[in-house]
Computed example of a mutant assay.
Amino acid sequence: MTFPRLIAGITLLLAAAGSQAFDYKTVGAAPAILYDAPSTKGGKLFVVPRGAPLEVVLTYGEWVKVRDFSGELAWTEAKGLSNKRNLVVRSAGVKVRATADEAALAVFTVDKGVLLELAEPANGAAWIKVRHRDGLVGYVKNTEVWGL
């Protein structure tokens, strides 16, 4: 392979990687065990509670390499994850607003680590519609949650 073709190939590969959207899944009905290798024989690192979002980094057969809210990488079985989209609140005292506006009435306030369900696709919007497990619905800034 010639040098110009190699550079062109690397450029295309980097462009494709940069345009790829993040893929998030949510831990299903049972807590997920995270391992240091793609096997139940691997070392168990920790357990992620049901409903927690995980970023899918790589899929390897029936296993996925995931990144959690704290940034840790590990492996888990794909069958334990769902396509439902939940988000984690990044900081304490986040106000969930009645409309997508900073001046809107706060419907409720949530603390760091609280799980919220993504109520509508975000599509890159600055504000996203979320639902609390108690049924309350409102809007938060996309920078105030993790899992998008």
Rank of each mutant, 00 (worst) to 15 (best):
A30R: 14
L54T: 01
N86G: 07
K141N: 14
E120R: 12
G80Q: 06
A122D: 04
L45V: 09
G71P: 05
V64Y: 10
G18E: 15
D23Q: 13
T40K: 11
E77T: 12
R97Y: 00
A21Q: 13
D134I: 01
L115N: 02
H132C: 04
V56F: 01
S91M: 00
Y60W: 13
G80S: 10
E72S: 15
E117L: 04
S70T: 13
A122W: 03
K112I: 09
A104K: 02
I7F: 04
Y24G: 07
Y139C: 07
D36K: 11
V94S: 00
V145R: 00
V107N: 01
G135P: 01
A74P: 00
S82F: 02
T143N: 09
T59F: 01
L58S: 14
P121G: 02
E62P: 11
T143I: 00
G42C: 07
L105Q: 14
A37Q: 05
L105P: 13
A30N: 13
G61L: 05
G51H: 05
D23N: 15
E55G: 08
V114H: 14
V56S: 00
T11S: 08
G28W: 03
G124H: 04
A125Y: 07
D101Q: 02
R133N: 10
Y60K: 14
V48Q: 15
Y60M: 14
D23G: 13
R67T: 08
T143W: 12
G61T: 10
S39Q: 04
R85I: 02
A30M: 12
V96Q: 06
D111C: 06
T11P: 03
G28H: 07
A122S: 15
V96S: 04
A125H: 04
G9E: 11
K79W: 12
A78N: 14
A126E: 13
V47R: 14
V64L: 12
L81S: 02
F108W: 13
T143G: 06
E102N: 09
P38Y: 07
T26L: 08
R67K: 10
P31I: 05
T143Y: 07
A98T: 07
K84A: 12
W146D: 02
H132Q: 02
G93C: 04
G147A: 11
A21Y: 12
L115W: 03
R90I: 01
